[in-house]
Amino acid sequence: MKTYSRACLLPLLILLLSSCVSSKLTASWVDPEFKRSQVQSILVLGVSEEDLLRRTFEDEMVAQLQQYGLKVAPSYRSISGKDIPEKAEMEQWIGGQDVDGIIVSRLVGTRQETVVQPGYTTRLGGYTGPYWGGGPHPWVDPYGGWYGYYSGSYDVLHYPPEVSYYEVYIIETTLYLVATDQPVWSARAEISSDKDTNRAIEDLVTDLIDNMADKGVI
């Protein structure tokens, strides 16, 4: 058995992030010679150490693909999420299944984004502008003398800028044709979310399925 490295894990466990989009497809490709009739049954392989997240992803993919009349199965029922079977073992197992295509989804990159909310200054009521900024006529003192001007300084509230960071995960999902062992469709998506994990997974899968439909893959 081989063990997954964390570099290839599907990062569905880190989707609870703030101030960012949930899912965005950035690129896709389809083999121009591929024909829809070549794939009638699909196995879904989500790469993740987290069994719950992997199962959620695979089940969502299965549910949405079945709406297109395909026979689809999740891999978690037969393949461990922590150990990779040897190639010969996998090929033997696949050969015994009624599978035309295999969808593999994995992490291929990350980057950090920065969100800056600008600071601002405000006052707790009273006069808000100097003479030269639209206030009363210069010979009318809005502060009532030097002490009012001095003590009013403490009514000014300053809120500094707020800086936050979040990670963007780049996911590549590819459909392989079992008969040729070659890719026939692939797409990349960037994911990060302020939503709950299940909703983020649903959004990601919906984007992928919509693209497959637009490309004539399903």
Rank of each mutant, 00 (worst) to 15 (best):
R106A: 12
S105L: 10
Y120P: 08
T110G: 10
G101C: 11
S105H: 09
G119L: 08
I102N: 04
G125S: 04
T121E: 12
R106N: 08
T110R: 15
Q112G: 07
P130Y: 06
I102C: 07
G119C: 10
T121G: 00
R111L: 05
G101E: 12
V116I: 15
D100R: 00
Q112H: 04
V99G: 07
V108S: 09
T121N: 00
V104M: 09
P118A: 13
P118L: 04
G125Q: 01
G119N: 06
Q117V: 08
G119W: 03
G129V: 15
G119K: 02
T122F: 05
T128W: 01
T114G: 00
Q112Y: 03
G101M: 05
G125N: 03
Y131N: 12
R111Q: 13
G119Y: 02
R123S: 14
L107S: 11
G101H: 05
G129M: 13
T128N: 12
T122M: 03
R111M: 10
V104T: 14
P130H: 04
V115I: 12
L124Q: 13
Y131R: 06
Y120D: 09
Q112C: 04
V115F: 06
Q112D: 12
T128Q: 15
P130T: 11
D100E: 07
V116N: 10
V99Q: 03
T114P: 00
T128V: 10
V99N: 04
T114L: 02
T122H: 01
V99M: 05
G109C: 03
